[in-house]
Design a protein around this nucleic acid. Structure first.
Lengths: 137, 137
DNA sequence: CCTATCAACTTTCATATTGCAAGTGACTTC
DNA sequence: GAAGTCACTTGCAATATGAAAGTTGATAGG
């Protein structure tokens, strides 16, 4: 499930999972309510599809997201955050706060992101968590 | 000073600066009180020296650290956090909290890291901020 | 039927980044 | 003056990333 870690340092280990150019951008996009492959591919940052497919597979392997079919014939999939993935929200929030403070002309942070909590993005197993989607209203 | 950004998204932009395998590990090491090249090279994660030199140059270019001589003949340098770099502490703290919760057998977080504030790691210009070094006691 | 389209990838190949090892130059110590 | 230390730099192989085109399974239209 996990790769070989460089060391037992928590910071280095987290980066062994998501410390590349695209993983956290993909995660951000899922937080933003985009769950299907084409929605994840069609972002302003222009990720190429081989990279997207690879990152989705890795994030799933590391337990940050789940892949589940939402229809059959043909099978189509949606990618959702696990609890483990939703718990990444504070990391993204702090990254965004840093960037807003120190890089000029960045987008402002939407309320659902700035004030959101991890729990809001992780539908409890067996419930209709999607009804509580904080990006909907 | 800054590279070309993929988009104005704060998360993506922050990753354009430090979204690689080593930048945040180098920053972590400086937070831990190691300021000289050989101290930064001699870490458990085994960074190679060309990568270290390149990351130090980039972190300096992006204004996260400063390089200053602490002696002449031969000239030797120390790398210190700027305010901008010290402000990365919450990002590292959240990354570490995530890793401690979700990856087994990681190092526990030292108090100076877990309870530290950015201000403690950025010596005010013209003062002896090093006297307040939170890792000293 | 035949062509077209869409979704979700996969493949190919060129370019960029990373990693290892060895080398360099200024100075210090034996 | 030979050897060692420090702070890099260079060369080159291995790995990762990026752009574009191809593939597969299905529905839709003429």
């Amino acid at each position: 499930m996990y790769p070989q870690f460089r060391s037992p340092c928590p910071v280095a280990s987290a980066l062994d999972l998501v410390g590349d150019k695209w993983s956290l951008v993909v995660l951000r996009t899922i937080f933003a309510g985009r769950h299907r492959y084409n929605e994840l591919a069609d972002i302003t940052e222009k990720i190429s599809t081989n990279i997207l497919a690879d990152r989705l597979a890795r994030l799933e392997e590391y337990g940050l997201i789940t892949k589940r079919a939402y229809q059959h014939n043909p099978e189509r999939f949606e990618y959702h955050l696990t609890e483990r993935g939703a718990d990444f929200l504070p990391v993204l929030q702090q990254l965004a706060i840093w960037a807003r403070e120190h890089i000029p002309d960045r987008w402002s942070l939407p309320g659902w992101f700035a004030e959101g909590t991890a729990r809001q993005f992780y539908p409890e197993p067996g419930t209709e968590g999607a009804a509580l989607n904080p990006r909907a209203g």
